[in-house]
Structure formats: C-alpha cells, structure tokens
Amino acid sequence: MMKAQVRAARALLGWSQEELASRASVSVATIRRQEPGAGEFSASGEVLARIAAALESAGVELVVGGDSKGPGVRFSRSSDRERLTFVLEAIQGAEKLLRSAQIASAASMDKSVARDLDQALSAIHLAARKTAQEVESFDDFVDFIADLPPDGTSDGIGADKK
C-alpha cells in the first residue's frame, strides 16, 4: 500500500487522519507517521490490513499498478449501488412512517398540518422515484462498461486512444 494511495483514499472519503485511525482501529500517530512523503507504508501487516479494510468497507478500492499505470484508488462499483440502495430504502421507510402517521391522525389533524404533511409526502415520493432511477441508471452504466471490448482499443470513458 502506497502512502499516496492512503492520502487519496482519505480525500475521496473526506476523512481526516483521525477518522481513518478510528475506523481502522490504529493510532492516529501511526497514520501521521506513515502517511507523509512517497513510497510504501512501512507498518506491520496487521496495521496495513486494518487500514485497507477500513477504506474498502467505506467503498474505496485500492488499485494495484500494472503495465504503464501506477497504483491508485477509486470508488468501488458495488459501493455506489449500495449507497443508492441504502438511500432509497431510507426514503421509502420515511415515506411509510409518514403515511402511517397521516392515517392514524387524519380525523384530528388541522387542515394546514394535513396540507404540509401531504407536501412532505409528495417530496419524499419524488425523491424515492429519482433515487430508484439513479439505481437503474447505475445498473445500466455497469452493464455498458462490462460490454466494452477488452481488446485494448479503449480504457473506458474518457480514456485517450492510442
């Protein structure tokens, strides 16, 4: 694991050194001592494994360099879909709770409160539909990438052709 990879992964996630240390169950001093400069982390295998696991569980993939490309980091494909699915489920859960509250208190609810609740439910329903569309679009994008030819004519979206 390269020092630059850890710094880049933290930047993708918006994490401080303290946040990474906490999530990896290592000391902040270890991160501060290891991260600066170039080259590889020289920590123990256990510490490296904890750091890698923390980053990967947050959805960042550490990419090993090969051929003419160096090591790097990227969001893992599955984590993007998992985040969208989580958001969709949370929105749908909130919508269900509000609908239940609306039904339970319909008789005693003030008209302006009922109108506000209807507007909130409409906004939540719209958010759920848009998030569901994003999940579907993400799946279509992953299918598109999977169908790209592996013959070296393209490295994917935005790649320079040789």
Rank of each mutant, 00 (worst) to 15 (best):
M1W: 04
M1Q: 10
M2R: 12
M2S: 03
Q5P: 01
A8T: 06
A9M: 08
A9C: 05
R10H: 00
A11S: 03
A11F: 06
L12D: 12
G14H: 09
G14T: 07
W15Y: 04
S16K: 04
S16W: 05
Q17D: 15
Q17T: 08
E18Q: 01
E18L: 03
E19T: 15
E19R: 11
A21F: 10
R23Q: 04
V26R: 05
V26N: 07
S27F: 02
T30V: 14
R32C: 06
R32K: 13
Q34A: 09
E35T: 11
G37R: 02
A38M: 04
G39F: 08
G39T: 11
F41D: 06
S42E: 12
A43Y: 11
G45W: 11
E46H: 05
V47W: 03
L48T: 11
L48F: 10
A49Y: 03
A49M: 15
A49D: 10
A52W: 09
A52F: 08
A53W: 11
A54C: 10
A54R: 07
L55N: 05
E56F: 09
E56G: 12
L62M: 04
V63M: 00
V64N: 13
G65P: 01
G65V: 04
D67W: 15
D67M: 15
D67C: 14
K69A: 10
G70L: 13
G70H: 10
P71R: 12
G72M: 15
V73A: 14
R74G: 08
S76P: 05
S78L: 14
S79Y: 12
S79D: 09
S79R: 07
D80N: 05
D80Q: 06
R81Y: 12
E82N: 13
R83H: 04
L84G: 02
L84T: 03
L84H: 04
T85W: 02
T85Y: 00
F86C: 11
F86L: 11
V87C: 10
V87H: 07
V87Y: 07
E89G: 01
E89H: 00
I91H: 02
I91N: 03
A94P: 00
K96S: 04
L97H: 04
L98E: 11
L98D: 10
S100L: 04
S100Y: 01
Q102F: 04
Q102N: 06
Q102E: 07
S105C: 07
A107V: 07
A107Q: 09
A107S: 10
A107L: 10
S108N: 09
M109V: 01
V113I: 12
V113D: 12
D116A: 06
D116E: 13
L117Q: 08
L117R: 00
D118H: 02
A120E: 00
S122V: 01
A123S: 07
I124F: 07
R129F: 14
T131F: 02
V135K: 00
E136D: 12
S137R: 12
F138D: 09
F138R: 09
D140Y: 13
F141D: 06
V142Q: 15
V142F: 07
D143R: 15
I145K: 15
A146V: 11
L148F: 05
P150W: 05
D151H: 03
G152Q: 01
G152A: 07
G152K: 01
T153Q: 09
S154I: 15
D155P: 02
G156H: 01
I157E: 14
G158C: 06
G158M: 02
G158H: 00
A159K: 13
K162N: 10
